[in-house]
Simulated assay, not measured.
Amino acid sequence: MKTSDSQFSKPQFSDLQFSNSPFWVSEFAAELIRSLNQPDFGQKLFQILKANLTFDSFVIMLYTNESAPEILHDEIKEKNDVFYDIYLGGAFLISPIYSAYKRGDYGFFPIREIVPDDFYNSEYYLSYYSKSGLQDQLIMISQINETKAVAISIGLLSGEFSQDDITMTRQLYPIINAAVNKQWSTLTKQNNDLSNQLQRAFDLFASSVLTERERTVIQKLMQGHSSKSAAKILGISVDTERSYRKSAYGKLNINSQSELFNLLFSCLGYADNELDCDPLVLFLNQ
């Protein structure tokens, strides 16, 4: 377990510190069960985990196919509202956690297990993710039903989670997953169609000028895949992938991933449920 200082001081709940008990998993489960169906369940889960694990941020998000992500609970020492606004405004579409949800990858993951191979060199990481200050994350994604999932992010602002931290949290995931499903199985939210609009805009981005394969290649690029990784996913050679990428850049009149990233997010602002067309056209005709 980590012993370094954290942005948060540990809650003064000695009865929640189970990790030194031979029955700690059972005690953890019992404490979490007592918190079910309570409005402060998210806060209680945070407190139980915080008493046994050192971390700096804790966020619970609801993912659905009908709307943009919703923050169910968060514990962040220095909350960056701009970061949240950008994420909820469209950046979530290419985030590794949301991508895992869309693939149906449910379970417990250290963040490095779900990010694409070139994620830390991607424009998404450099221009957006890195501004969160997070150096490491543990992720839990719990399926609630066919279209809904709850994702939990536990983050560090410095250093990495130890193997003991990872092992302990992995042991707790089945208990947390069951509790989360029980707590939020009937959770509903108003359908504002924002997620559908943004997903459609992302899917149709540059469709008026690029071929389907060129669009797929740049989508993989924006998600953080290297040429080698994208080529493997698409079943093409690396040289062919690079040819598609070069062609797409030329048609979009851009020269870098940074320009591509900025163009995409400029176009997402033109997402429209009524118009099933390329948002790039709407952006250029503004």
Rank of each mutant, 00 (worst) to 15 (best):
Y106E: 09
I144E: 02
R103T: 13
Y124C: 05
N52P: 08
V217D: 06
Q286H: 12
F13E: 02
G107V: 12
I233M: 05
Q47P: 01
C277D: 15
K182E: 14
D56A: 09
N37C: 05
T54K: 14
Q137D: 02
A91L: 07
I76G: 02
L36P: 05
S57N: 07
Q183G: 03
L198Y: 03
F109D: 12
S237Y: 01
L263V: 03
E78I: 08
K50T: 04
Y98H: 12
A179C: 15
E214D: 03
N65E: 13
R170Y: 05
A230T: 01
K189R: 14
D15F: 11
N253L: 09
Y244C: 00
P279D: 15
S35E: 14
S227A: 12
R242W: 01
S195C: 02
F202L: 13
V209G: 01
L72G: 03
G89E: 01
F265R: 08
E160D: 12
S21G: 00
L263T: 10
L187A: 00
D105Q: 13
Q135E: 15
E78S: 09
Q223I: 00
S122N: 04
L187S: 01
F161E: 06
E31T: 06
W24S: 11
M168P: 00
A100C: 11
F283D: 12
F46Q: 02
I233A: 03
F13L: 08
S57E: 07
N65T: 09
V209I: 12
D81Q: 14
Q7L: 13
Y87Q: 09
S132H: 10
M1R: 05
T54F: 07
L157D: 09
L32Q: 03
I71L: 09
I114G: 11
P22Y: 03
S153K: 15
P116F: 02
V150D: 00
A30N: 13
S229L: 00
E123V: 10
N273F: 14
N177L: 05
K232S: 08
S243F: 02
Q163L: 08
Y249P: 00
C267G: 10
G107E: 14
Y244M: 00
R242Y: 04
W24D: 11
F18A: 01
I71G: 02
D40T: 13
I154F: 12
V115G: 09
K148T: 15
Q219D: 04
K232A: 06
P69Q: 11
G90D: 00
V82A: 14
M168G: 06
M61W: 06
S4F: 09
T64G: 07
S14R: 01
I139T: 10
E274I: 15
S9K: 11
E113I: 06
K2E: 11
E214Y: 04
K102V: 14
P39A: 10
S4M: 10
R213S: 11
I233Y: 06
L194H: 07
S195P: 01
Q223S: 13
D278I: 12
R215L: 07
I141P: 01
D165G: 03
Y173T: 10
A231W: 04
K44F: 04
F55K: 10
D276V: 15
Y244W: 04
G133C: 07
S21I: 01
F83S: 04
Q171C: 10
M1N: 04
